[in-house]
Amino acid sequence: MVCDMTAIREIVAQHGRLSADARTLEFGTNLYLAGLTSLATVGVMLALEDHFNVEFPRSMLSRKTFESMESIADALGELVG
């Protein structure tokens, strides 16, 4: 896997304001069902951009991109190449 899953997990835990502890979730768990709100998604997005030094293009700014840690990794994989 291209991306550092530990960092993604840590960012989701810190910025996702989930009802569950992100450290206990599977990578494929639906984060919206775990309590990720639209606004918290923005926090997660900005933290990911800072950490991985990327910018999500407009086409990726959808609910689907941030659905799970796995989908986030896929998106970052595309960006980091």
Partner: peptide
């Protein structure tokens, strides 16, 4: 507002 807002907008439409 902002780039995050684009995501909110897409969600609202969805």
């Amino acid at each position: 507002f902002g780039r995050g807002g684009q995501m909110l907008a897409a969600t609202q439409v969805e």
